[in-house]
Nucleic acid binder design. Structure first.
Lengths: 254, 254
DNA sequence: CCAAGTGTACTGGTCAGACCAGTTGTTTCG
DNA sequence: CGAAACAACTGGTCTGACCAGTACACTTGG
């Protein structure tokens, strides 16, 4: 198999990076599982044969990646954490903010996700989840006159339940990350001009229609509605040159 | 605006976190831009009034997030980096491989992504990208008799180009992560039984059809084909109870 | 005068040892 | 037996030091 001795570029690996690498690997291969404990920093400096400063730098990196958590005084040592979407969320946010990812890409992404999860939710929703959705939509309706805070909270609640009902964690996580990044961006843009009355009524009507499709277990319709609505909602904010892809996603097959 | 004095839960913030926060904020608000330099660690310990160890922990976190880069000996200090999708990629990968996600979810996710990116690719592909795809498909064809390694490499190349041609980095990143996790999972399962001849011929036929649709700029057909093929490919590996969602995604609207 | 080599003053990477505030589990005392 | 005091840890931070690099100004030989 080794046809030729291939040399490959190297870059100096610092001690703390090697430690991060090892622990990351141990977690990836399930040698360390959520809830498990790492030895204390002072023990770790023994096993890795480095100073505590180096151990700590490694631990800080792992901690910032959401892989472990250190609490002072805990004699059981740093805890291995369950993988969480938090860092994904942050990474996506940064990327969008920095302009590396265009708004149109983010909206396309969300159109796709929202459509798919509504389709799946129509199929997989439990009766309980349906009731939670109903309650949320009703809460939107009754708070439409009140503050926009309560309204958008109910709106988020509705969509969160849809994601949950899709029974697909990946979509749930990515959808949540995309939604978060999107509202952050939009809030920056329309800055202090939250949902107007008309906007709220429109959102309510949309959610209501989607709810009906999900209740009827009509996945195709639910997905189609969701795609259309997201496009309708965000379409105006996207530069004209970037809109053609969106339109295509909205009507995937005729 | 302040209707009531609302108390809110707090958690102790460590010194290095406060530093990370400040620098992150400065980058987010464009006070610091890619190519700019941070003061040296020794200067930073002055401005933040902490020890160098603390400064370094903060820098390590920022570095692991891809925001800055430190090089020893560089008298200009740590460099602010252009935001890159690398950390998002890593986060996505970790999440997908954390094992909390079922195979069926992963496949659903990929069906959705593959469909959407093929649709977008049909619209957005450049002539150059089309040629790369053509070359990749031809490479698959010619290596079908040879090793399966070369074949699957060409296959990956084809799909990677499709993602690239979608001009949506988010989908590209998520698609790549999903693909990686999926082949890992499948390799674990069928372990040492790589693509058989029949399997290869099938994949080739699929990619070829997709290629034709992309060439014809028929986004709807490209997406539909991609969805169908992914389902066809992975469908058998999924437990029967989890298949109904997939089928729905395959035919989003009639 | 210029190019090539030399120095030097910085940089980050790592280490050793120390102190503090906090948690935990045990022990002691009422 | 319960509650308060204790001891043995934990992580968070600081000080001060050394090394191996880099960049840039400075010599020095042509």
């Amino acid at each position: 198999m080794t046809d030729k001795t291939e040399f490959v570029a190297v870059k100096p690996v610092r001690a703390y990076e090697a430690i991060v690498e090892q622990i990351e690997q141990a977690i990836a291969t399930r040698q360390l599982n959520p809830g498990d404990r790492l030895p204390s920093e002072r023990d770790l400096m023994g096993t890795f044969a480095v100073s505590r400063a180096t151990v700590r730098e490694a631990l800080r990196v792992l901690e910032s990646g959401g892989l472990v958590r250190s609490r002072p005084g805990d004699p059981r040592g740093p805890e291995i954490l369950q993988a969480s979407p938090a860092t994904l969320h942050k990474a996506m946010n940064r990327l969008v903010r920095s302009g590396t990812i265009k708004l149109s890409e983010l909206v396309e992404f969300r159109v796709m996700l929202e459509g798919a999860s509504c389709t799946l939710a129509a199929e997989h929703r439990t009766p309980e989840q349906l009731e939670v959705m109903r309650t949320a939509v009703e809460a939107m309706e009754s708070s439409i006159a009140g503050g926009s805070a309560a309204f958008s909270q109910a709106d988020v609640e509705f969509h969160a339940t849809v994601w949950e009902a899709s029974h697909n964690q990946l979509m749930q996580i990515c959808g949540d990350a995309a939604r978060g990044a999107l509202v952050d961006l939009v809030n920056d843009r329309i800055d202090s001009a939250p949902d107007s009355g008309a906007q709220m009524k429109l959102s309510l009507a949309h959610d209501y229609e989607i709810f009906n499709a999900i209740e009827a277990q009509d996945g195709a319709r639910a997905g189609q509605l969701a795609r259309t609505f997201v496009i309708e909602y965000y379409g105006d904010m996207i530069e004209h040159g970037d809109r053609n892809g969106l339109a295509l996603l909205g009507v995937p097959s005729e």
